[in-house]
Every structure is written in C-alpha cells, then in structure tokens.
Write a protein that binds this DNA or RNA. Structure first.
Lengths: 189, 189
DNA sequence: AGGAACAGAATGAACGTTCATTCCGTTTTA
DNA sequence: TAAAACGGAATGAACGTTCATTCTGTTCCT
C-alpha cells in the first residue's frame, strides 16, 4: 500500500484510540512503520496530516451513507436508507465515530474544510428534503436544520452509549430509530 | 471574588475561546491575574482544574435548564420549558456551549465524572419521561435514548450554526424547535 | 515576628520539525 | 555485462520551543 495512505490510516487508529493531543508524530511513525522524518515527506505539517485524515474520514462516511441508495425511490425510503446507513456505520466502525468526535473540535479543521467534507452528502440529501417539503410530507424548516438535528441526535446517542455502554445496541431497533428521526422532521396536520 | 472561582472562570473563558490544547496554565494565570504557582495552591494538577471547570459548567447547564420549571405542570409543558431553556441558554451563552464541546472529548473527563455532571438533570427529567410514557403520550423507548437524542439534536444544531453562522438564530423559532423535539419523542397512533 | 499566600523564574520532559546521512533501485559508462 | 554514478526516498538523532510543575524569594496578614 502507498505510504501516504499508510500514514493516514495509522493516524486514524491512534487518534480514535488515544485522542488528538495524545497522538504525537513519533507514535504515528511507529504505528505506520516508518521514521518520523518520512511523514514530513508526505505532509508539510502535522496540521496538514490531520486535514487529510479528516477528508478521508468524511469520504468514508459519505459513501457509507449513500450505499444502496435508490435515487428513484420515495422520499421516505431514501431517507430511511441514509439514516440507517449512518446509524449502522457508526455502530460497526466505532473507530470512525470516535475519530469524528475528536476532529470536530480540532483547531486544525477549519470551517471551509468542514464544508468540503460535508459537501457531497449535502448535495445528495438536500434535494430529498426539498422534494419532501414540496410533497408536503416534511416540515417547512430549512434543510440544514432538519438534517443537522437528526444527524446530531444519532451521533450523540451513539457517543453516549460508547461512554456508558449497553443501552443502545440491544434496545434501539431500526424501526425505533426511524420513528424518532421521522417524527422530528415529518409534517403532520 | 474567591481566587478559586476566579481561576475556574478564567479557564472557562480561555478553553471556550482557544480550545483545551491551546490553554496552557501560564495563560490561565495571566487571565486570572495571578502567578502560575498560585494555581497549584488550589488545584493539584491541571487535570483537576479541568474537572472543576467541567462540574461548574454542568451546574450552570442544570440550573439553566430547570429555571422556571413548574413541577406540577403537564408533561408537555415541563419538557417545553426544559428544552427551550436549554436552547436559549446555549444561544445566549455560547461560551458555555463551546466549552461543553471541548470538554466532552477531553481525556480528563472520565465516564463517572460525566455521570456526576448529568445526574441532577437526569433525576428531574427521567420521571417526566416516565410519566409521559405512562400517560401514553411518549414513545416506548428508554429515557436515555429520548433525552439524549433531543439534546444531541439541539446542541449539534447550534454547534453547526456557530461554525457557519446565520442560519439558526434568525430562522428557527421556539415553536419550530419544539415541533421538532416533540415529533421525535411523541407517540402517535 | 511568624506563617500563610503569592508571584514568577527555573526545571525537565515531551513535542513538532529539521537535516545530515544512509539506503536502494535505476541509469550510465566502459 | 559489470560496476560506477546518480537521485530521491527514508531515517532518526538533534534542535528549539512549549508546557506542566516545582522552587525560591517576597508580600501580606495577624
């Protein structure tokens, strides 16, 4: 495998396990099986490495969320797919869920980088919300608000469970989760 | 004011503004108007200081959320009060919202400390959920799941807005917010 | 005077980053 | 073809900086 990617992977593992401020370059080098100096052949600074880690993480989230998405299906079916994809990915790959928690408060992650990381997902989801709103099945509230609220709920739920385990995985079925998510955004008369 | 509290306050301000890893003791000392050594008269280690900061933060959140709570009111009214209190507090005191973001991924904050920080709030809210469930107005889903989901939605919404401002404060009315929160947890037939 | 409280310089460990050197595969030369 | 020359990837010891913590002399209070 490419050294570039090897270094990124090692950094992902270490930050998820130990946190950002407990992940010195020296330990990344050891984990990646190279010398510390080598890392600086691929990344000018540690900050740049972190940025690369963040973008690779967001790519994985994006493709996980969009997996098996049938873009001809109904609004409801499409959102169900995306939300369950997100929920399952975060449960199955806690490393990436932990990593996202760490990076979302890292000073190295600027506002534009965040925007870049979310762009692909947003350009898929926002039209679904828009359509749902036109069809009258979704509340008249901006895309961002609806999307972010649901995302925040799911991610916080799983984060809490990671800290004090055993509540969520055994109790929250897919149906429950979707009922909560839909309740939040659904328009009722 | 007590030096003890002065040091905690200075630390709150600096962590909220600069992040935890950009808040050395030396800068806390300067902000608090004392020498670095003085801090160690009140806190044995920096970690202990961070723990005190966290507990003081959670006290403020707790009392903000429970303000004007009428414990004889209906389930719906009580939850409305709590959620709006939370929403308004996080909007009005962004320093504390930022601080919570930083501390919730800090290694100094252990799982038990988190539990202690949330305890008072939970012992008030959980019975409200339980009652709502008995009355048939709230979904048959554990307290933790419902509470955490709503909290996560609100806090993530405001965090996102802080990074790319202007969406939320002007657009999301109290009614909208409550409609989202209630939709998530409300039982419908 | 005597002891507690305080300030800030001193200390040593840990970190990000640099750089002189080594290593290794490829190209050139005879 | 064999060996010499080359170039850039890789290395890790060394450097300068920053930080938490300690030390030491001073100030304040009673």
């Amino acid at each position: 495998m490419e050294k570039h990617q090897l270094i990124i992977d090692a950094t992902c593992d270490l930050i998820a396990e130990n946190g950002l401020q407990a992940t010195p370059i020296s330990s990344v080098a050891k984990e990646a099986g190279c010398g510390a100096g080598t890392i600086y052949r691929y990344f000018e600074t540690k900050e740049e490495l972190i940025e690369a880690v963040y973008l690779s993480l967001m790519e994985r989230f994006t493709s996980a969320c969009l997996e098996n998405l049938d873009r001809t299906a109904s609004v409801r079916e499409q959102l169900n797919t995306i939300w369950l994809n997100l929920y399952h990915y975060m449960r199955e790959v806690p490393r990436d869920a932990l990593l996202l928690d760490q990076l979302s408060v890292a000073p190295a992650i600027s506002a534009e980088l965040q925007e870049r990381g979310k762009r692909d997902l947003k350009t898929t989801i926002d039209p679904i919300f828009t359509r749902g709103r036109q069809e009258g099945s979704i509340k008249d509230i901006p895309d961002d608000v609806l999307g972010v609220f649901v995302y925040g709920g799911i991610s916080t739920l799983l984060r809490t469970d990671r800290n004090a385990p055993c509540v969520v995985p055994t109790v929250v079925t897919d149906d429950m989760l979707l009922s909560i998510c839909w309740g939040a955004i659904e328009k009722r008369d």
